[in-house]
Design a protein around this nucleic acid. Sequence first.
DNA 1: TATCGGAATGCGCCCGTGAC
DNA 2: GTCACGGGCGCATTCCGATA
Length: 638
Amino acid sequence: MNIASDEVDAEAGEDDGADALPFALVLDDGMPRLKRQRCEPSASSGSFVPESDESDALAAAASAFQAARSAVPLVRKGPRSVQEAFRWPETKLDQVCKDPNREHRLRSLLEHGVLASSDFSGMGGDREIMRQLGLVMQARQWPLDAAARFRHVRACDIGRLQRTVLSYMSMNHDDFGSCVTGDLMERLPSTFLETISDMQPSEGDDVDTCVRKNSLIDSFIKENRAEIFAGSASYCYVHDNMCLTDRGLHLQDEQSQVPLRVNLAGTTCVGWSAVGSRKGFGHTSEVAHSVWLNERLHNAEALKEDMFIHECTMLYPAQEKLADPLSETHVVLSIKTGPQSQGFPSSRNRTLSAGLSKATTIWMGPTAPDLLQRDFDSIFATTMELSGNIFFLEDDETQRRCNIDKAVCQRGRNRLVLQSLNRWDLLQSCLAPGAATRLREYDEKRANRVDPEGAFLADVEHWPGQCLGSGGPLFPCQLKHGTVVSWQHQRAATGMEHLAAQGYHVFDVVGPKTPLYSLLSTLDDCKLKQLSGNGWSLPAVCAWMLYVWSNTCKRPPSSLLRFLACSRIRSGSDDDDVDDGQIGVGCSQPEPDAEACGLDAANEVPEQVNSSDSDADVHASLVTSLVYQEEDDFAPQT
DNA sequence: TATCGGAATGCGCCCGTGAC
DNA sequence: GTCACGGGCGCATTCCGATA
């Protein structure tokens, strides 16, 4: 049994780019051998799932899944043209729908559409993914049109540039219907905000002190979450007003008609990034993370949110940051992947996570960490047939003229001299001194490769060997700035090409442009790179979203009613009756009979929903005492 | 003209993981 | 246990425009 790696190391990456392989793809003896081996990710490395005994249904589903895994997955060929690569929305949907069970679950889950809110939104990559998926589903005549399927209620980002983009989308594509807010801290009531400010680490504090203080802040927010987040409002840049952050997320009278309510977030990873200060739990961004996390906790308890999708850097400790704090209310899943695992020639490995509210959803996918990673890879992993050169879609001659203009304006170079240079010399003339030095070092490295004429790209703002994916056939991993040079095109990538490398449709040749293009085309390269580096790889996150959705079932209304009845019984009884040891073992609880409890089930939901937030909040221990439906409830329709 | 704040620019690393 | 290598939404300085 071989386990292939998706990592692009310097040597393997120089060959042909075909080594961008999935993290835990298992190949049987009869399968083609891959060049490198890699250990399966351990639980501590970030891939994890809830306890296997969480419910009989989950265990049964996991067993069924493990049995199905006996079939050995083949590594499919990746896209072979730029047009094919940019058909990622269709491709991902096809890949996930190959299994009729997954397709059935996906259709069922999205039957009433998606209501999305996002935090740490960046340029709204989640919106673009859902817009693309909506178009594909519409073309395939899935029920409901695209606009009704994916709706957005709120986006949020601390950056002014990002807010400009998000506001543009709200105004032009939501008819001013969605909110755009700023810093997450703004949604805290002023009294709590003052207290937290007093508790925050001081400038001179060492890391241990910062960790301790951040932990205290997290505990404080968690303990007071109902008061903090009930009726929480924040200044909205679209409506120029204070808007509720949970607008539109409450359950409707007809619970069965409720859309899937998803929060999407790519939390700040500076504390965990290798280029950051590596303060980890002591970093200042931990407070905003705590606000975001405890809001998820609160929303799940108050039945206001069904799941969240989360993206962060590879070093993000998802177990400690997500799974442990949310163990009572959510099923938390996590994998490591990137576009390069899926045949999209751009380097951006990420830890992708999802949290499913136990109160309103049921996870039907594999439960073991390695199975989860392997199952995901078995669906989406492909060979790498392309290089990062496919993203150089601007006309080379037009770019040459632009570079000359820029060098004349910004560096005071002589236009006539520049015009006399060949493309390579012009490139060097346009670079900063340090970048030009690094360009030469990369050039030496390229010349020493086995195939010096093969595709070669590098970010010359990083020294060779420093930046993953830089100095190889893939488009290097993007930060918020960069000068990505293609040796074949002998020029640096433009801001639009950076966005293309993230999967955005910003060139006609790859299909209809994103509606965002009309705004993006007004921004300079620097801003485009800032947005792109701050953003998501759309194909990779799209795959993860579809994977999570296609393995998730909404808890049927009858199940929710039993849960609510159970909550009422427990609320009215001695708290000591709630056996902590039973938490997380929902199926082991005797199923309460709503009718026997004297509850009018049909009236219970609205009453619960319409009550004030604090009343509606359900203690986490109650959330976990759900009675799961039999797996048959979710079997595909025949 | 001095000051300030935001944007642009140029330069840069250390820790965890895995192979040996 | 050692060591090589991969991982990357940074940071400090300079520039520039707005304002008093």
